[in-house]
């Protein structure tokens, strides 16, 4: 994962609530075996509407998406996060996210910033004409109009994002502890070791 420190630039002033992952990326795009190219299918249904923010010249290639409450609810498909990355989105700001989407986003180095509704509303307004800057180190969102909003983030996630740490690699450092657990398991719940009956 690439380290994430600052994300700065234009932002899609989107703001819609309860956007589920079927809307972010419809099921027929899930036939792919790679993570690339999903940006073309992102928000496909919404893009059929005239005047949608995603096809507006002003926001083309914007690295930030300002969204509404409960962003990313529904299916567990990580393709939603990959579609955003493929569009060039590096951070999403919203009043709340579904658990599984925020986890999927984090694992792909997308910064999810939770701010109160009125601050999100303000950013939707600013984004129409100006850029927005997010600084992870200081946990702040700023605008050229001197707006300055602080946000909370899980310290573990923050450290991983800042250092570009790979979570699988981190957990593999606990190899000995996992090995010890497996030994204990073989003694305490031996029937679980049978698995599919194939040797490890």
């Amino acid at each position: 994962m690439e380290p994430v420190r600052q994300v700065e630039g234009r932002a899609y002033p989107f703001g819609q609530k309860n956007i589920d992952t079927d809307i972010i990326i419809p099921a027929h795009w899930l036939k792919t075996i790679t993570r690339e190219g999903l940006g073309q299918g992102a928000f496909e249904v919404l893009r059929k509407e005239d005047g949608n923010v995603f096809d507006d010249e002003r926001y083309a290639g914007a690295p930030i998406l300002v969204a509404g409450d409960n962003f990313g609810c529904g299916s567990s498909r990580e393709h939603a996060a990959w579609a955003l990355i493929d569009m060039g989105v590096k951070a999403v700001i919203a009043p709340s996210f579904s658990d599984i989407f925020s986890s999927n986003a984090f694992k792909n180095g997308i910064l999810t910033v939770v701010l109160p509704q009125e601050q999100v509303d303000r950013l939707v307004e600013v984004a129409q004409t100006e850029t927005i800057a997010i600084d992870l180190e200081s946990q702040t969102v700023t605008t050229p109009f001197q707006d300055r909003f602080s946000f909370e983030i899980d310290p573990f996630r923050k450290a991983c994002l800042l250092d570009g740490l790979d979570e699988v690699g981190l957990t593999m450092a606990s190899d000995a502890a996992i090995g010890k657990y497996e030994m204990q398991l073989a003694a305490s719940r031996p029937w679980m070791a049978r698995g599919t009956g194939l040797a490890a």
């Binding site: 990580e78 599984i100 986890s103 694992k107 979570e167 593999m172 606990s174 996992i178």
Partner: peptide
């Protein structure tokens, strides 16, 4: 419970989840 693809990778590699 259901997991995303990065978690699928995490479980395949480590048989654990955080």
């Amino acid at each position: 419970f259901g997991i995303g693809t990065s978690e699928v990778e995490h479980v395949l590699a480590t048989q654990t989840l955080l």
